[in-house]
């Protein structure tokens, strides 16, 4: 009997020894992240393998104690099979990738000249110009999308101006298509492109470009053989920062894209709120994460995580 008590006491003192300020400091955020980030992800995986049910909550449990000593584990792969066979989901992935890809390329084409011009402007104005790029980012996201509804809708700004000058007779269909969704994404994420580009271009030694000019290369050649390769890290970082949030975007395609631009974000939303099919929504999310978001984000983040977690 004494032995057990002694062991319990030594166990408690062992734990008490570990309770230092340092470990408490580590424990508090760790518990938070475990509870509200890791747990939800695990539950998401679990529900993606269950079956849909008309009940509350609307899914079956994976593990059941049957009568006697039978432990039943039911894993349903149907939610994943549906995603790869039903045309709607495949289309959803293709649409999302196309819209996010187009917007990323457009952001790059618009952001590069701007970042270049800011980096080459006089030092005095540079911080103000950069500040002006971020300032719209601080106004509400929804409001920035709303601004484009106001410009593009059938009775919106652009159409009413064109009608007033009799350039068109009937309003143009500018909204509720993938074009509008792209414009919204470009507008919302342009600052994310400009910043990494700026910091890459700023570091380029301008004398290299001058040397190329002196040696007789055309400005275009100098640009593509010097500026572009040297700003490659910025181009890469900016593209990831635009593409990754754009691919899972819900609000922009919902408000600007109209009914036919069904992106993955909207499909997840519809499965959950419309069809009440939690397992399908969960499996869609998992596929989105595993096949699209994580591979892209991982290549970019790996460097940073290494940087962060070093001693």
């Amino acid at each position: 009997m004494y032995r057990i008590e002694e062991r319990i006491i030594s166990w408690i003192t062992e734990i008490a020894k570990k309770i230092s300020g340092r470990n408490i400091l580590i424990a508090i955020p760790s518990i938070w992240i475990f509870l509200f980030f890791i747990c939800p992800c695990l539950i998401l995986v679990k529900i993606s393998f269950s079956e849909s049910l008309i009940a509350s909550p609307p899914y079956t449990s994976l593990i059941d104690w049957m009568s006697g000593y039978m432990l039943q584990v039911r894993i349903n792969l149907g939610n994943y099979m549906v995603l790869f066979t039903d045309e709607m989901y495949i289309k959803g992935f293709v649409t999302s990738i196309l819209i996010a890809g187009t917007s990323t390329i457009c952001c790059l084409m618009m952001g590069f000249p701007m970042a270049y011009a800011i980096a080459r402007s006089s030092e005095k104005f540079r911080s103000i110009l950069l500040m002006l790029v971020v300032l719209p980012f601080w106004t509400s996201f929804l409001i920035r999308i709303y601004a484009w509804i106001m410009l593009l809708s059938p009775c919106g700004f652009i159409n009413s101006i064109l009608m007033k000058f009799h350039l068109i007779n009937a309003p143009l269909q500018l909204m509720n298509n993938s074009f509008a969704a792209c414009v919204g994404i470009i507008y919302a994420y342009l600052p994310f492109m400009i910043f990494p580009l700026y910091s890459a271009i700023e570091k380029i030694d301008y004398s290299l470009i001058e040397a190329a000019h002196d040696l007789g290369s055309s400005p275009i050649r100098a640009f593509f053989s010097i500026v572009v390769p040297l700003s490659a890290p910025g181009i890469y970082a900016g593209s990831v920062l635009v593409f990754v949030p754009a691919i899972g975007e819900f609000v922009i395609p919902e408000l600007l894209g109209g009914a036919q631009t069904l992106t993955i974000g909207r499909l997840v939303w519809n499965e959950f709120f419309g069809n009440m099919s939690w397992p399908t929504a969960a499996s869609l999310s998992i596929v989105l994460l595993i096949f699209v978001v994580f591979p892209i984000a991982f290549t970019q983040r790996r460097k940073e995580i290494k940087l962060l977690s070093r001693d």
């Binding site: 509200f36 939800p40 992800c41 539950i43 998401l44 990754v244 949030p245 691919i247 899972g248 975007e249 819900f250 974000g265 997840v268 939303w269 959950f272 929504a281 969960a282 999310s285 989105l288 994460l289 978001v293 994580f294 984000a297 983040r301």
Partner: peptide, 11 residues
């Protein structure tokens, strides 16, 4: 890098 929809759903 988590899409908002996925984060909302899992939470």
């Amino acid at each position: 890098v988590m899409p908002e929809v996925v984060m909302g759903l899992s939470l």
